[in-house]
Design a protein around this nucleic acid. Structure first.
Lengths: 250, 250
DNA sequence: CGAACACTTGACAGCCCTCAACGTGAGTGG
DNA sequence: CCACTCACGTTGAGGGCTGTCAAGTGTTCG
């Protein structure tokens, strides 16, 4: 809670190629960083640009609404929640960001962050100065393309939950989506920890916390999932995917 | 209904500098095209890249879901509706795009358009080959920045309607938003034509068409608006802005 | 052990969707 | 000029999903 945005701490943890290549393989920038056949000088430039920041502990903010926008960041470890507070004081969760995913993209249009970002557990980040990565992107078409794609994808995901889906469809889509993203990063797709509170899920899915509770209980009674506090097991994935199908564009 | 995407017709209407400078001043690319202090050669490159296509008449599609993605386009005249059909056959309207606004940005992440785009009235477009404009953006930082900002802004607008707002709030935000965008383009902000059907508005706001009808009628009874078929007059703008405030982040 | 918090469970109400019928305006053909 | 058609829009009645309010349970932590 320093008030400063993206404090440049822990600079001692610099990019270590040996370790980075494996660690960063799940990152959204991995294509740009590792595989685009960039010449060594360009690759070095990108790695020089990265600042490893954190760790942030649960409840600590990475940035706050209104902070001047200077950088985007990729999650290295942990989960980041982005949210905003409307004038009635209600919290709207924009997204949960897992390792390899990028935060701050919706701030590019303005000069300030339009939302808050808070760590849900212990979080470390790769910080990219946006002015600098923009300049670099003019020299690295692969990097520019990566940025375009990241931005474009977020437009699509933001549109998905905008539909008028039922509570069951929303919850199913949330669980399946989370499962797929975890699987893509090497975690178990059928059994994982929910790092966010029920209230966070509710604010993300635009439901009441009580509804989240009831839907999860009903899912469990129907044998679709098994829930124990923050731990969840997807027992009947086909059924879940079918329920979520309308949202996850099938 | 040719089935071909972005047909390159009407190529005879080429960029005419004398006319373009005034016409394009309201366009999303105007900063990149006109004012960024680009050298003449660069400016010429961008104008060379533009293809003026259309006109499309009401009901004709600009592109369809699944079409290979090759280009983005700025609306020159008319209104374009982007939408998708879910597996239950329900239409979800992603947005209405006025002159100066850009369509196709959500297709960049994939290699195919994720939605349909249809003309609501007579529409003409400026087509930009995306591979070509990407290459050009590496040489013109101002253009790259413009693209980044356009993409980023769409993330934000997509998130806005995702909230759990009431029908009144949604309708008010829709009217105020439309009014502001029209005003920014030199049209009257208080009296304008709705180019879309009630059903389109409903599918955009995630309401039933009947609800749209009822809300508009109540607004009229309360003296907030005056409606006559597709023509609408915002009689009490402060009241509308207040109702929409929660969505239009004030 | 007590307090704070997260979560669950139940009762009730309200908003909005669904279904149905009717009204209206534009275009067409006689 | 009129009857007809059809799409669009309006109006009404009823019901379902989910939010709200309230109380209770379980967990964590000081």
């Amino acid at each position: 809670m320093t008030g400063t945005t993206f404090p440049r701490v822990d600079r001692s943890i610099v990019a270590d190629d040996g370790d980075e290549f494996t660690f960063c393989s799940t990152c959204a920038f991995s294509h740009a960083c590792l595989s685009q056949g960039l010449d060594k000088a360009s690759l070095k430039d990108l790695h020089m640009l990265v600042e490893h920041i954190g760790p942030f502990h649960a409840g600590e903010h990475v940035f706050r609404e209104g902070d001047p926008f200077e950088a985007i960041a990729a999650v290295r470890a942990g989960t980041v929640k982005t949210y905003s507070i409307d004038r009635d004081g209600r919290e709207h969760v924009l997204g949960f960001h897992l390792p390899g995913e990028v935060i701050g993209l919706n701030a590019i249009a303005g000069d300030r962050y339009p939302c808050n970002a808070v760590a849900l557990d212990t979080v470390t980040l790769c910080r990219f100065s946006f002015p600098q990565i923009s300049v670099l992107a003019t020299r690295l078409p692969g990097l520019q393309q990566t940025l375009f794609r990241l931005l474009s994808r977020d437009i699509g995901t933001a549109s998905l939950l905008a539909g008028d889906w039922t509570a069951d469809e929303r919850m199913a889509a949330f669980l399946v989506g989370l499962s797929r993203r975890l699987a893509a990063r090497g975690f178990s797709p059928d059994r994982f920890q929910l790092t966010m509170a029920r209230t966070d899920i509710a604010n993300y899915l635009r439901l009441a916390p009580e509804t989240v509770s009831r839907v999860l209980k009903r899912f469990q009674d129907e044998g679709v999932v098994r829930v124990d506090r923050r731990e969840i097991e997807l027992a009947d994935r086909p059924r879940l995917e079918n329920m979520a199908g309308g949202i996850l564009q099938s």
